[in-house]
Amino acid sequence: MKRRTFLGLGALLGIGACATREATMGNRYYSGPVSDHFDGTQFFNPGGTAPKGFRDLLRWQFEGGKADWPDDVGITRARPEARVADLRVTMVGHATVLIQAGGLNILTDPVWSRRASPLRFAGPARATAPGVAFGDLPPIDAVLLSHNHYDHLDIATLRRLHAAHGMPVLTPLGNDTILRDAIDGIDARASDWGGVLEAGDLAVRLLPCHHWSARGTGDRSHALWASFAIETPAGRILHVGDTGYDEGRPYAAAAAHGPYRLAILPIGAYAPRWFMKDQHQNPEEAVAGFRACGARHALAHHWGTFQLTNEARDEPPGRLRKALAQADMSADSFRAVPPGEVWDVPA
């Protein structure tokens, strides 16, 4: 069976659509000094473009052009080893990746819930099951949380992870408040762009990317978004949760902290371009970013699990292959793999 995109409340509040720039009484999650990307109430992209407004959202929702997606895509789940000496990544789904590096186990933007939404009965539903059953996870040493949209920050999953693993969550400013308010006793550690967060043998530098944040209609850009330069015993990794290409500036900033053995880059949720360009890069831009950041290998994410935008489910990896060929780059250097697939990244 197939379904047509239905962007429910979860999408409208926090996935790629937005409300008007509402008047606020102050920031809900963060209080700190004004900077080149914080005006005292809201974070912003310096020199970048603000998200589209409510009128543009309505235009997108009513103009049509949304592809049909299958209701359920079968996968083969992985059962990870407890520890891995070198560098291994396992695709769980959407922006959730299990990174096993030099004996460390790291999860990015973990979502095991059925919907990317504040509601259980509405909002984008999974087209694929998680590539690793929750009970089959190895011990988790840290979670990297890039920003607070519902397809990246899932309180139900983080509550389960906290109960099972008690790991620290490393995240940009403001998201730690959201976590502490929702989950008693969680170890949430936050920093600004340029800051470094540590957890045991893991060191994570937060880097700028071009995005925004919201959990509802009154907290737009009250929490920061970031990419991560991850220092592990098995090499340096760049993880980008969500970003617009922004003339390549996020990748120029990342390149200064390379070289990277692996980059984990988003390639989906980009159509229509007139609406999504400022917040979600497309596969061609991801290839340009891969080349610019100086990584030796790349893993594609943010496609094929939740239907957030107009493109067909299998379009992003197809366009990725074409973009790599046009750039005269090996298809094996930048992989788009299904949930449950395991990749031992070459040295």
Rank of each mutant, 00 (worst) to 15 (best):
P70W: 04
R180P: 09
H162P: 01
R220D: 12
R220M: 13
F290T: 08
C18A: 13
G258D: 02
G304N: 12
C209N: 14
Y30K: 03
V111W: 03
D39P: 03
G14A: 15
H297Q: 08
G218Y: 10
R4L: 11
A125R: 12
T217S: 10
R291N: 04
R291M: 11
N27C: 08
Q326T: 09
L12E: 09
D184R: 11
D181L: 14
G14Q: 14
L206W: 03
H37Q: 04
T20G: 15
F275H: 03
V345Y: 01
A269T: 00
H257E: 07
T41V: 15
A203C: 03
A226G: 13
S221D: 15
A101H: 06
T90Y: 07
A199T: 01
M91L: 12
S227Y: 04
Q61H: 02
P283V: 08
A312M: 14
H210C: 15
V345Q: 04
N282A: 14
P70L: 14
L262K: 09
P168E: 02
L197A: 08
D141K: 02
R83I: 05
L98C: 07
K277V: 10
V132E: 01
D278E: 15
D36W: 00
G131T: 12
F306H: 11
R321E: 13
W343K: 04
A142T: 06
R4Y: 01
P130K: 02
A288Q: 07
I237C: 10
W69M: 11
A269G: 00
G194H: 04
L9M: 06
G103Q: 11
K66R: 13
W193A: 05
S221F: 11
A127C: 02
A312D: 15
Y260C: 02
A229C: 11
I237D: 10
Y260D: 04
A253W: 00
Q100M: 04
G216L: 05
A336N: 04
H165K: 01
W193I: 10
L153Y: 02
P46G: 02
N282K: 09
F121Q: 08
P316T: 14
R261S: 08
